[in-house]
Amino acid sequence: MLPFILKRLGLAILVALTVSFISFSLLFLSGDPAAALAGETASGEDIEAVRVLYGFDRPMLVQYSEWLMRAVRGDFGESYYFKLPVASLIAERLSVTMILGACGISFALLTAVPLGVVAAIRPNSIVDRFALFLSVAGQAMPSFWFGLILIVVFGIKLGWLPPSGASSWRHFIMPTVVLGYYAMPAIMRLTRAGMLEVLNSDYIRTARAKGAGEGRVLFKHALRNAIIPVVSLAAVQMGFMLGGSIVVESVFALHGAGYLAWESIARNDLPTVQALILIFSMFYIVFTFLADVLNAWLDPRMRSS
């Protein structure tokens, strides 16, 4: 198991370095950063002065390694817009996004896996059809639209839940449902397909021939195998959900990192965008790595390959 983890860890670090380089180059790809900093009215000399002041005239690799060393220490520079350290700006918002992400994926897994299992045990039953309907609807309906419907119905008409803000746990209910529903269909369908396949396999027949009861057959023998690909998918979905959280946070006016990203792109606040891209990618890489480890733990065949 350890060699496998080390291999995956090495891979993850490599991907992280590549991604960090890409997000660093963003600053240059989007035009001359010195000109952007100096402002529209600046003369040629002013821009040159800014270039030297900020060190943009030095070789790219030198700048990158300096930037990276600072980023590792949590120093992402100063926001063009807020004139505040990007790190403190993000730290404040990131917890909102993390809570939302954790609630969203939990909601998705807690609804999708049981539904997928029941749908697989009773294909074409009412539950199966209901699950299919939910997943088709979930994939056809854009998150912002679903979010707006919830706000109108539960926030305004019925007045059960606060329509926007982040000041209590009740504020997180609707965003969680919207974000989780975004990831649910794919997880449900994979669980259903996996269970259907596994339930037809020879080792399930063996388990029954041993005299195992239905519950044991379903959960100990079948789900344990069917869940393996679902773990990888859930990790990928977590990554997508960070993106989805940009939409959800803006619909519900939750001031999280997703909302900040949205605003910063609109404001051309490059250091903030850069830092957010880096952080979101790192989350994604960490999730993928954890999913690999979890997969190896669940599937002994992976460990030795």
Partner: peptide
């Protein structure tokens, strides 16, 4: 295929 791949 008649043994469960997930268990020893």
């Amino acid at each position: 295929t008649s043994l469960n791949p997930a268990y020893t």
